[in-house]
Amino acid sequence: MSEPNVPQTPEAAEVPAGPYVYDYKAAPYRQITMPKTVPLPSYHAYVAEQKAAAEADEAKWQKTLADYETAKAKAEAEGKDAPKPPVRPVPRKDDNDMKPPVPQEATDADLLKLKELLGDKVEEIFEQAGELVCQVKKEAIHEALAFCRDEAALKYEMLADQSATHYPAAKDYACSVVYHLTSISRRKRLRLRILVPEGFAPESACSLYPSANWMEREIYDMLGIRFQNHPDMTRILCPEDWEGYPLRKDYPTVGWGQRDIAFREDRGGMLERIALQKAGQLGINLKQPKAD
């Protein structure tokens, strides 16, 4: 139990009687590891990544071969035994039931139809884990939803779910908003996706799918994305005067609203020690009296 951020257990006399007060200003009150990658599934990105990986692999192999050649030449020149020829490593195959699904090229008729209808407003279509994904331009989402609902070949009657994800590591957008559409008559699901930069307000889906009303309110409440032409763009789960958007990645998981730690009786100081240690682990800064 010796993490670097564990504060020194203070002497009994130095510890205030409590309750401990959460100090907002004095110190880094949160320890947030901001995500470094952008886990946005995408066929293009996947293909590019695979290609890059293959190239890197190939380059590495070539380098190994070259190294071998030079080593061999050197050994021959020095008259020693030749080094072993390198063996190209085969990717290890795990013997288990876990095979993470990868993006695949779109072959479903619905996606192709959407692509045909929307033209260059579609940024990407692909399939992954048996799900259809269509990423459209953020200005065209209303149009895309209208097509999905009204086109006879698509007929997605229900907006089952709408959600958003925060990608702080991405450069040209901040969040993605996804729409999960269900076609009850055709037993199909489709995911529409838009990428939204900070401050951009996408068109609300309420006029097409009334069920978007609360879901968009929730997205606004949790991630701070406002929607245009929404009938009632207010917070839904948090109180109206709440600060910040909880599901953003830069929102602390501990700290704000954390209950003050106060024990009525602490036998042997054990609880206090636990509290301090826990606080250290969680990154809470407890106000302690100055040493002087």
Binding site: P39, L40, P41, Y46, D94, N96, D97, M98, P100, P101, V102, Q128, A129, E131, V133, D161, V178, H180, R189, R191
Partner: peptide, 13 residues
């Protein structure tokens, strides 16, 4: 299963 479950880039509903 492997001992530790690690995901790939993916989104599912």
């Amino acid at each position: 299963l492997p001992k530790i479950l690690r995901s790939e880039v993916n989104e599912v509903y």
